[in-house]
Amino acid sequence: MRTEFNHLQAAHCENGVTAGLLHHIGLDKITEPLAFGIGSGLFYIYIPFIKISNGPAIAFRTMPGLIFKRTCRSLGIPVVRKKFSSAAAALISLNEKLDEGQPVGCQVGVYYLPYFPKEYRFHFNAHNIVVYGRDKEHYLISDPVMEQTTTMTAYELERVRFAKGALAPRGQMYYPVQGKAVTDALIARAIQTGIKRNVNAMLHIPGAIAGVKGIAYTGRKIKGWRDKLGLHKAGLYLAQLVRMQEEIGTGGGGFRYIYAAFLQEAYAYCSNDQLPVISTVFTRSGDLWRTAAVQAAGIYKGRIGSQADFNVMGDYLLEISELEKQAFRALAKIKWKA
């Protein structure tokens, strides 16, 4: 069974799957930036007591799964989501849906994704793809980070759907169901909810390690990395920061550009003059993140490496923290009309 499914390339997998599946039920208006913003996708956290791949645990976005969940809920779209304890049950359920002509979002691990280049295979279990059909031997796959659609065998698909470890997908599959009509007014309300929730997450989250405070916290920590970890390991830590910020899926600048694009698009629905202005602040923030990445690269490539260089790196993050604080405060002050 082969369902008509328009492959949609996106910067980030979850945005792409969300937008792709929503387009499939007729909601063409929901672009990647809108899905990201309505789902309050922008975030920052550095968890100092956890290590991932022997480096710091840093995220520039919200928890996997939340973007899809929040976006659909805000738009009043019912969602079906299933997890499985057995691979056989997961396969039967997937086949049923595909044979009904329903494209399905699947959470998968990337370590065994056959079409990913070797250099990208890490044990990251929260990647998202759309399975939109099958023939005798293959499952038809629309992976939003790829330019083209691709295929996997049943064995390959089972292996990635049942990847193990942190955030294990457990065969998780999900899809939105057609609900009430989505009007522009509803989209406008969803945008406002999304912005308010994002303001809360970035400004008011308790503790020092998350939100705009978390960015400043990381900046202060970075200044101590050279003495604490030694130059080599400190360089690897910075490399990990840059990978989280720029690696496939962020659209550049740790999702800050996607968020800036979202605010521009939001203006079409909620014509508040502040939105395009604040959008440019996020563009500046994204640019600064990338400038910081260039500084970090100088350190992990060994071109520079003095304490002064680490101080410059840390100061970039302090500056970014201040900039994003201003931006979110401005968003918090917006008086919405409706």
Partner: peptide, 19 residues
């Protein structure tokens, strides 16, 4: 290395400032 598999989407501004 990613180039072997696919090009990736980046969000950028055009001369008028539009994303």
């Amino acid at each position: 290395s990613l180039g072997k598999m696919t090009k990736e989407v980046c969000y950028v501004t055009d001369p008028s400032g539009k994303y």
